[in-house]
Design a protein around this nucleic acid. Structure first.
Lengths: 207, 207
DNA sequence: CACTATCCATACAGGTGTGTATGTAAATGA
DNA sequence: TCATTTACATACACACCTGTATGGATAGTG
């Protein structure tokens, strides 16, 4: 086989990652061989072993394309007035996250991470999920604490509890949707549930 | 090897299932061979293939020992007055579920189903999770509808939304806890969050 | 215009797991 | 008590997957 140009090589690398996403999602990570991935991209295992050291390395590269920390979502909104409206910051960040998740790549990779892979090699998907959950939960609690200080939270509702409630609810919705995304739109139902929950947690209008 | 009595055979079957739980939880379902399970129970693969047709059959038998439908939890409480206090029925059923989950067998098997197995053979763990979620969500919505008719739900809160909020929150908590149960007690934090959420959803005391 | 590094395909060796076939000694039942 | 079934252990054949070694043709590079 002939050598490819740099651009072509980069393209095959992406094609291999695309193929990995699809096959991983269909068969599960453990049950798919590197040969199946290679064939699905019209390549051979030689291409995979050239671009990646092994399956774990390929897997990490696949995840690298869809990182989505909660804090970055808030920052991307870029509205400085959100500091004074922490509950609205939460709302907008979640909506932005929902929109991202409806893109096939984000949806597929997260579905693989959450539902279609086990520990393997030196990769521990549960540890990664823990990191994601910790980051999101910490940020949510921070924003709820801020909301509490501003008097935006319903009296008697502990900001820590509020943050954990939000994180649990969002996480549950996330898992449910990733299990089979055809059931409902994460954007629609997410908006509905999130608004309902925020309405419950918000301080009643005073005057 | 000598033949065992019926009681001994039943005991080895249970021992094999116990061993499967431990090894599955530690290594993941896909990465554990039947030989590893057999050795962990001081047996050989012959014993496994005698009691079960293959790994999928063994897996199903393992799940069979810990079925825990939401409706059964309510029925086990056996308090007829709960019909008139649907939110209390939800609360008590969840607490009963939390207590069950703290038993090692329930915790281990559910952790395996949720976090340590992929599709394999003719077994689809996601379909099983869907069934569990559907059953719980349906029951929760029913009870919330009942609560709404009795005026126990906060005005303006749709009972369907309330049920889905509860299911999402409980599911998220469930997943988080199963990921590493040493972090917190599901009974403690579950009670805390559930009470907080129910308090938010309950109709304010009138008179 | 060589010359080398790159980008992959192909070939090979080794390990590992599965399913089944066979052996076997004791429990069971008449 | 004796034949039969049970409850496994052992052995075997086969498939598959991984990692690496090797080959080869061209894209870059000076």
């Amino acid at each position: 086989m002939a050598r490819r140009t740099k651009a072509e090589a980069a393209a095959t690398r992406e094609a291999l990652l695309d193929a990995a996403e699809e096959v991983f999602l269909e068969k599960g990570v453990a049950r798919t061989s590197l040969e199946q991935i290679a064939r699905h991209a019209d390549m051979t295992r030689g291409a995979i072993y050239w671009h990646f050291r092994n399956k774990a390395d390929l897997f990490q590269a696949m995840l690298q394309r869809v990182r989505m920390p909660f804090q970055e979502l808030v920052e991307e909104i870029g509205d400085p007035s959100l500091t004074e409206r922490p509950l609205e910051a939460i709302r907008l960040a979640c909506l932005k996250g929902f929109e991202r998740l409806e893109q096939p790549r984000y949806r597929r990779v997260h579905a693989i991470l959450i539902h279609h892979c086990e520990v393997f090699g030196d990769i521990d998907p549960l540890a990664m999920q823990n990191e994601m959950a910790e980051e999101a939960c910490g940020a949510l609690i921070d924003y709820c604490g801020c909301a509490a200080r501003l008097g935006h939270l319903r009296p008697g509702l502990d900001p820590g509890v509020a943050g954990e409630l939000l994180q649990a609810m969002l996480g549950g919705l996330f898992h449910d949707w990733l299990r089979n995304h055809e059931r409902f739109s994460i954007l629609e139902r997410g908006t509905l549930l999130l608004d309902a929950q925020l309405e419950l947690m918000r301080a009643p209008a005073s005057g």
